[in-house]
Every structure is written in structure tokens, then in C-alpha cells.
Design a protein around this nucleic acid. Structure first.
Lengths: 140, 140
DNA sequence: TTTCATGCAAAACATTTGCAAGTCT
DNA sequence: AGACTTGCAAATGTTTTGCATGAAA
């Protein structure tokens, strides 16, 4: 995980920002998990691990990480946003179970290509896209 | 638009619900436009047109329409939900301009098929899906 | 020491809900 | 009459913000 720290520190330095205890702990936690987590999940885990950090700081730090592309937000509906780190993870889309909340990732280069094509034909410059499939997993 | 009223009235009757002035006016407004609108847009337009309706009722009626499949919600991020009526509209996806908010619709049967395939291979039963492309339109 | 960051509590938003009063059937 | 609806205001849940205090560089 040295890479994540270095890249993050670089980013902070470049913008005259500081590497604080809170940001360090948060970065740590974000890259330690490979699940999708909410801001509150993250806050709870950090406090549980003995770190003193406010929910406001969690949101502020997450915002930084998202802006920098280290972390991605996934809007799962009804105002719920889950996050996941992106370093070392290829782009993927999500299938969300409406019953148990389980999130499965998948990817399809064909879908990507078709999206690019669609955007181009409407003269849009793609910045990001979000494909979510909602349904019921086999446990439902 | 006779069809929409009839279908809505049917729906209400079937569930022991009532066709009130507010619901009539709202249905009217929803089907009169072919744009994407927020609950507040709708509320404002209704009041502007001289109808007395509360925002709570707008949400309640929109909920009914969504549940019945007359209207679809489009989560455009940051807790913003826009609605559009679906009667007589084929399924489509959206390209959203991050600069001006313009929303362009497109559809691709190939993407649909690939999604079905992806869901099936993960043993999910699809209920809905949402594909949004974010970017900049040619005016940006 | 000079910024920048944090914590706290209040504010901001969008949406939902309880309840008494009003309206449809 | 009786059940469903409405409006209102308060409650909700999540995220943001102002400001005084605290901590990096």
C-alpha cells in the first residue's frame, strides 16, 4: 500500500494540503477493505479502531479522494452512496440485489464500447458512466 | 391522453383509492410535458397553474405513479431525482451533461442484451437497470 | 507562525410521516 | 357515513458549512 500513500501525499503536497492523522487513518481504512462502504460505515470503523475523527472530516476526506480518482462513489438509490477504492481495480459495473443489498461487480468491454459509440454519436465527451442493474440474487 | 386517465383511474379503483383534484392535476401535468422534472419543478408548475397542492401530496402521487409504472425516476446524482412519464415511451438510457444539465436519451438493444446476459451469468433476476453516461455536450 | 484541518453544532436538502381536518364515493 | 386524502409542520437521514480551536509544515 506504499503506492497509495505516496500518490495521496503527492496530491496533497501539490495542492498545499496536509497529511493529517485523520487523513492517514482514513486512507488506510479505505484501502484495507475491498468492499463497498458508506461514509457512516467508514466513520464507525475508524472510531471502533480507536481513531478520533468526525463524520464531517470523513465526508471532507472522501471528497478529496473521489476528486483525485482514488475512490469512486456508487449511488445505490434512495440517497444512499457507497464508496469503493479504485487503485488497482479495473473499471466495472454493478448488479445490486434489492433484497439483501449484495453487490456483484461485472465488466463488459462490449458494453463500454457501445457506450462510447452512443456518446460520440450524440456529440458528448464522456467523463464517466454508471451502469447499475437492480434485481434479486439467487439467495432472495 | 384519455388512455392515461383511464388506466390511472382503473389503478386507483382497483386499490380502493380516489381520483382527487390534486391527482388529476398532477397526472395532467406529468403527461403534458416530455421533459425530465423534479418533484419541486412539478409542484411549482402546478401552483403556477393555479392548483392548490402541497409538496407532500406531490411526492405521494409521484410514488403512486412510479409504483404503477406510469412514471420513472432518474437518479442524476447528489440526491437529485428527475422524473419522466413512460407511457408511449420505449425504454432508453441517458446521457447527462455535467455543464448545462442537458439530458439526451438513447437506446441500444445490444447493450440491453449484454446486460441481460451479465445478470443471468451472475444468477440475478433483473428488475430494472440504469445506465447513465456523464459528460459534456457540444455546447459546453 | 502561518496556513490548513478538525470538531462541533447548526444548516441545508430532499423526502417522509403523524395527525386533524377535508373530500371523494 | 365512512374511508381515503390532504395540508401542515415536524421528523428524517444524509451531507454540508461556519467558526473557533488545534495541528501540520
Amino acid at each position: 500500500m506504499k503506492k497509495a500513500y505516496d500518490a495521496f501525499q503527492d496530491l496533497l503536497h501539490k495542492n498545499g494540503l496536509r497529511l493529517t492523522k485523520q487523513r492517514t487513518a482514513l486512507l488506510d481504512a479505505v484501502f484495507a477493505t475491498h468492499r463497498h462502504f458508506s461514509a457512516e460505515d467508514l466513520h464507525r470503523d475508524l472510531e471502533k479502531a480507536g481513531h478520533r475523527i468526525s463524520i464531517a472530516t470523513v465526508y471532507r476526506a472522501l471528497g478529496l479522494l473521489v476528486e483525485a480518482g482514488f475512490v469512486q462513489g456508487l449511488d445505490v438509490g434512495r440517497g444512499r452512496v457507497l464508496y469503493e477504492h479504485t487503485l488497482g481495480h479495473a473499471h466495472h459495473d454493478h448488479i445490486i440485489c434489492l433484497d439483501c443489498g449484495k453487490i456483484t461487480e461485472f465488466q463488459s468491454q462490449e458494453i463500454e464500447d457501445l457506450q462510447d459509440q452512443a456518446a460520440k454519436s450524440h456529440r458528448f465527451k464522456i467523463v464517466a458512466h454508471s451502469l447499475k442493474i437492480f434485481g434479486y440474487c439467487h439467495n432472495a
